[in-house]
């Protein structure tokens, strides 16, 4: 084995596809072949030429029986469709879901601020809660909401500050999707 590897340096540099994160030679199994191919063409044209040449594709196909080829193709199509629909869904969710920043009155002049809906934007609420706590130097915790799901509760009236902080620090969050709510009612006991 040693002689086979002597020509190459270690550690080996491996290129990973920017779309599906696999090594490019495995892109064809990923379901996002089209996009992967485009990405590779842009970023590593030499590799693209090697992997996506007519010859290479034909060679790949010839090693399988006809029936297996058909099955593989069907499978690939299914996978691609699945990947596409999953992406569309995620995007739609992103567009429609809202982040709610609520000011809740605790005790006449004391408030807490609740932030809901962050997880739809691919944020880890535990981490965000920690960041809030650090930034504003207040207590910040993840609490369960009665209706299911979780929200971040920050001590103090910070709704405007959180609004700005969210937009500055989390680029994935579009401004239109953040909403401020002032809740004057006292929080129900329990």
């Amino acid at each position: 084995m040693a002689e086979a590897s002597s020509s190459s340096e270690f550690p080996k540099k491996v290129i990973y596809c920017g779309v599906c994160s696999l090594p490019p030679e495995y892109c064809e199994f990923g379901g996002t072949v089209k996009k992967c191919e485009e990405w590779l063409e842009q970023h590593h044209p030499d590799m693209h030429a090697k992997l996506y040449s007519q010859e290479a594709i034909e060679q790949n196909m010839s090693s399988l029986s006809l029936e297996a080829q058909k099955r593989a193709e069907k499978d690939a199509q299914k996978k691609a469709a699945k990947a596409a629909s999953a992406e569309a869904k995620a995007q739609e969710q992103r567009a429609t879901s809202k982040i709610l920043i609520k000011r809740i009155e605790r005790n006449k002049r004391k408030y807490v601020t609740a932030v809901q809906g962050l997880e739809a934007f691919g944020l880890d609420i535990k981490k965000v809660a920690k960041d809030f706590g650090k930034k504003f130097a207040t207590g910040s915790s993840v609490t369960k909401v009665p209706g299911g799901g979780e929200e971040i509760t920050v001590q103090g009236d910070l709704s405007d500050d959180i609004f700005d902080f969210l937009l500055d620090n989390y680029k994935d969050v579009p401004e239109d999707n953040v909403e401020l709510i002032e809740d004057k009612k006292k929080k129900a006991a329990g």
């Binding site: 040693a2 590897s5 270690f10 080996k12 491996v14 790949n60 399988l64």
Partner: peptide, 14 residues
């Protein structure tokens, strides 16, 4: 991927 030859390898068909 960085050190492929340092492990016991097997190969599967396509």
């Amino acid at each position: 991927h960085k050190y492929p030859d340092s492990f016991q390898l097997l190969r599967i068909d396509r």
